[in-house]
């Protein structure tokens, strides 16, 4: 299991980050994709912007963006209508063979 996956399993969302280039390296990697230097694993701020969404029955899923650059697909728990661009909280992340991200609107 990778560091990224281990942290997810503990409900911690980390991304690889290059301190020399001062940027996230996403999707996660052991090396920076600009300078090929080593990365550190930095927790990602747990608020995200809603980019796009759809649903499958009652299950709403979509693309969300963290810190202006890290996009993931996750499940969105909501009882009300969503708006593109609205902010969501990452309420849960996990790893069970697949990365899992669960979000909910900030109320």
């Amino acid at each position: 299991m990778t560091r990224f996956e281990q942290e997810l399993k503990n409900n911690v969302f980390v991304s690889s980050f290059c301190t020399r280039c001062d940027k996230h390296v996403w999707p996660p990697s052991d090396m920076c994709n600009s300078c090929f230097g080593n990365v550190i694993w930095r927790p990602v701020t747990r608020t995200a912007k809603l980019i796009e969404f759809s649903s499958k029955g009652d299950e709403v899923f979509g693309i969300v963006e963290f810190e202006g650059s890290i996009r993931v697909m996750g499940r969105i728990m909501t009882a009300s209508a969503l708006q593109i661009g609205q902010m969501l909280n990452l309420t849960e992340c996990n790893f069970d063979g697949k990365a899992k991200f669960v979000l909910a609107p900030i109320v």
């Binding site: 990224f4 996403w26 999707p27 996660p28 899923f61 996009r71 993931v72 697909m73 996750g74 499940r75 697949k98 990365a99 899992k100 991200f101």
Partner: peptide, 9 residues
Amino acid sequence: WDVSRGQYK
């Protein structure tokens, strides 16, 4: 490989 797709691969 694409973990950014989360559980929606």
